[in-house]
Design a protein around this nucleic acid. Structure first.
Lengths: 216, 216, 216, 216
DNA sequence: AATGAATGAGCTTTCATTCAT
DNA sequence: CATGAATGAAAGCTCATTCAT
């Protein structure tokens, strides 16, 4: 089923004009800055507007209410993330399964680590923001992309691709979040990342259909 | 290092008396109910007190401020969770590694699933609640417990136990959270759970030290 | 007219027993301490009780409400002050007028300076405490005492004693308060005290009835 | 040293625009009204806002917290008072000393008596309002103004002008306050006022430097 | 009597949102 | 369209006072 982003949570103004898009990005960036500076609880629309260098009125031109701002922000970042994953999937199409897993983990990990503070702040800003629709939308893009990639693996086939795909995504995404939540030192983080790749690969070795093993 | 729960986030009144403990639990339960009913954003101290059948004043006798309530609630549940895990670890001491992993995953999964709504609500109540200290405290109990258990495995030894332990915990906890976040249907959830056990076991087969394989 | 201390502002329990008087004094002292420590705005009955080492309940046994506590405290100190002044007046009965003024100023000044912090704190605690009745009661004791003293002066008589008396008291008391309010350095304070005596004496020289001058 | 009014006690919004100044005055007046109507203890920001015909929000736009409102109010009146005194000092520059004292007392007395209720209410509103900085600021304006005036007297010079000045100010201001505090009937008040002038003049006759007497 | 947990009215303050300019 | 002063509902929290123990 297609994800249904509640209409009342989408930016009022479709950014047709370049200027609007610019303003939107400025507002997003300002939101992040405020989130980093004072945390979600003390984030106010006024503060965001101030930081963005626009008036509250203008802010409300772009987002009908505070919720919509959060929604838009998360959507923004999830979109970017989905794009990166899709790109990786396209690139790795037809590659050996081992490379796929490594690339997927690395892509996701890097995307999250690039601006670790933003990641952490976003993980927390999602309160009451019935973000289910966002997650759903994200899954709706990523699930098929990775499934398609795995299906194209040059050296493996899976009898139950869909569950394998789901397991891999859940594990990878979850582990990354867990690492952030535990605020692990960078070294430990990298170690876990490596082990995660190992783990996924060993798992895939196990669930690969019988014929693959023979042809090996 | 011992985790240091910020003193300003601990219940004001140490529940020395039976009555106080009862009240504390009533308040916790009421908080959960309110969280379920109206979500974290619309949870007010007054509402919680009402639901608990006590006055706001009493609430504030137990928790110096709203934050402390959330902190206490999470602490409460994390404590219970840690206890269950410790119990499992004690029970499985000396068992074969495969059983350990299965038991660990199952324990954690069940604990979270038992009251899925509470779990989901708690995952979200953690806003601005510098829950780092909580997570740290939790990790400080669970990490050693599982490490000790794994070290006692009858059929496996690990050259780098600490990283293996960390990887397993991060993966398991993260995956469970991910499943809750995606709000997967029960069937898919159970499937992923199974796969997660598989995955962990295959990983352990890989990282088990060489001598184990020989003795096999 | 006799001053009418509103009955609802008097201590509930007349301190007939020694123990009660002791407790009363402990409570007064605690009130002062709290006043000094946190100021009148953040003074709470609970805090006073704590400091006094009694329970709130006991506090309320002695003072039916917070107002009564303040009232009692001020009354306590004003009584002591009035006593000192009365004593001075009795002692100086029949003395030359110059000595009288000097003794009066010195007595008042010393009484206030003895525990300057308490004085300052009391000056401020008098909010909403319709302290008019207190002031009236104080004036009702002091006015006659000094008037009587002045009337007995060995070297001066006054045609309008009552206005002279009022002027002197108002001036002396007011000046002292002013000095406290301006938080003048001790040196300046003492200087002003000296000048005040000078001023009062010069004034008395002027308003002394004509016959006095002749007899001089 | 320049008085340092704590920044957190100054109006948030500098009244640059006429409208803001108007609103400010309305709020001040409303505060006085409420103070008169219910006393300082039962004054609430909501009540003040209501009386002023603005919303609480607006009140808080002008004053970051209740304290600031009191601070601003007192500052307002002390400023006006200081101006009047400065004006008198300028006007009396070079006059005979007797006229100066009379003018000073009269100016101060009138200023306080003009709206006696306001005066009384302000004297009491000063709770916990570390009004030291206000008093200091006031003294910092008035002290030099009167000193300068006295120095210019056509018929008197003083060897220790600074102490004489301090004594006069402390005495005058204190006496007035005392009269208000005792709630003296108008007749008595006026009588004391007259005596106060007399007293100051007799004092000045005494402390005038010797040469003045000769030239007399 | 003494205690101190419980009460809840009421206060200060915030902040999403509107709308006249 | 942009602005930002004004709004006021609603939240967090305090504390004088009571009363069962």
């Amino acid at each position: 089923m297609a994800p249904t982003p509640p209409t009342h949570l989408t930016p009022r103004k479709q950014p047709r004009q370049a200027r609007a898009t610019v303003t939107l990005n400025i507002i997003f960036e300002a939101t992040i800055q405020v989130l980093l500076a004072v945390g979600p609880r003390r984030l106010t629309t006024t503060r965001v507007a101030e930081r963005a260098g626009v008036s509250v009125g203008t802010l409300y031109q772009y987002f009908p209410h505070k919720q919509a701002l959060f929604y838009g922000l998360n959507q923004h970042y999830l979109n970017a993330l989905a794009e990166k994953i899709e790109y990786t999937c396209r690139t790795l199409h037809g590659a050996p399964i081992g490379q796929m897993v490594e690339a997927l983990v690395t892509t996701y990990w890097n995307a999250k680590t690039e601006r670790a503070d933003v990641t952490r702040v976003l993980y927390r800003s999602v309160v009451e923001l019935d973000n289910e629709s966002l997650i759903e939308a994200f899954a709706g893009r990523v699930d098929p992309a990775t499934a398609e990639m795995f299906a194209s693996a040059s050296d493996a086939t899976f009898t139950d691709l869909s569950i394998v795909n789901l397991t891999l995504l859940t594990t990878i995404f979850g582990t990354v979040r867990s690492v952030f939540e535990r605020n692990l030192p960078a070294d430990d983080g990298r170690a876990v990342q490596k082990q995660l790749i190992l783990m996924c690969n060993s798992y895939l070795g196990l669930v690969r259909s019988a014929s693959d093993h023979r042809s090996k």
